[in-house]
């Protein structure tokens, strides 16, 4: 099967001598749900942001659906980003806009500057956005202002925004790190169910190993900017997690609850 995403020799240098990523190799097949685990500062967020070039990689290649991401020009990059949804740890909503408007932002990659600025979204997009909100249980919040919602609700709006893009791949950067256990489960379920149904591949950075084991089809362990584990959930032994979080064991149990 043609992979959705191929990463080869990806490196990111922050300042002289500081490498955020140090030669990442990774292939994502259609429909995979991959959890990226590793201690803080291992490079998980940098990795995800290099996929859609919110951070510019220093070296290496990223291929998305056969297109070269690293050398894409402005227009190509927009189109690549439009087909890659992203979910953020801090939700990154526009809090003064309505919930519906925030979901419709997912459509901005498909419409022109002027139409977007004037908020001229196609009616069909609006209907789909409302349907998405209903699906995650926010049907009563459609016209609320985003800052009126609770954390878990905000993140579900973030999930809907990513889904509104009709992406082939979703990048989720610590989507539940700021949430309580109950909201965490709702949000993870929303991401998982929708990705399954719509055959969207998903790369999700997770802090909590138990969540990774519960949802992922495959686990990638990152340490000091390198992939040190890549395999199915069953192969992730406690020895490996031990090694991943060596010296930072406290993080493994941090907020560990499911």
């Amino acid at each position: 099967m043609e992979p959705i995403l191929t990463i080869q020799g990806l490196k990111k240098q922050y300042s002289a001598g500081t490498w955020g990523l140090n030669g990442i190799e990774l292939t994502v097949q259609p429909g995979e749900f991959i959890a990226v685990i590793g201690p803080s500062g291992a490079g998980k967020s940098t990795l995800l942001r290099c996929m859609n070039r919110l951070i510019e990689p220093t070296e290496g290649s990223v291929t998305f659906l056969g297109e070269d991401v690293v050398h894409a020009n402005k227009r190509q990059l927009r189109s690549i980003r439009a087909r890659m949804g992203m979910i953020f740890q801090h939700y990154n909503l526009v809090y003064r806009s309505s919930v519906l408007e925030n979901v419709l932002h997912g459509r901005l990659g498909y419409i022109g500057s002027l139409a977007g600025m004037l908020g001229r979204y196609p009616e069909a997009d609006k209907e789909e956005a409302i349907a998405l909100l209903q699906k995650v249980g926010l049907e009563n919040e459609v016209y609320k202002r985003a800052d009126e919602l609770s954390g878990g609700q905000k993140q579900r709006v973030g999930v809907c925004r990513a889904l509104a893009q009709k992406p082939s791949l979703i990048l989720a950067d610590e989507p539940i790190a700021s949430l309580d256990p109950k909201s965490s489960k709702t949000v993870m379920d929303a991401i998982h169910t929708n990705c399954r149904e719509q055959e969207i591949a998903c790369l999700v950075n997770l802090h909590q190993v138990d969540y990774a084991k519960a949802y992922a089809t495959r686990i990638v362990g990152i340490k000091a900017g390198r992939v040190v584990f890549d395999g199915p959930v069953e192969q992730l032994t406690s020895d490996i997690t031990q090694y991943l979080y060596e010296g930072q064991e406290h993080e493994m149990f941090h907020k560990a609850a499911i």
């Binding site: 859609n52 949804g85 953020f88 990154n92 500057s113 002027l114 893009q165």
Partner: peptide
Amino acid sequence: ETIEAIRSVGGTWWHVIAK
């Protein structure tokens, strides 16, 4: 954070500013 969000969906510079 807002800039990241609008850029990540493939929005233009004008989208980042206006939306």
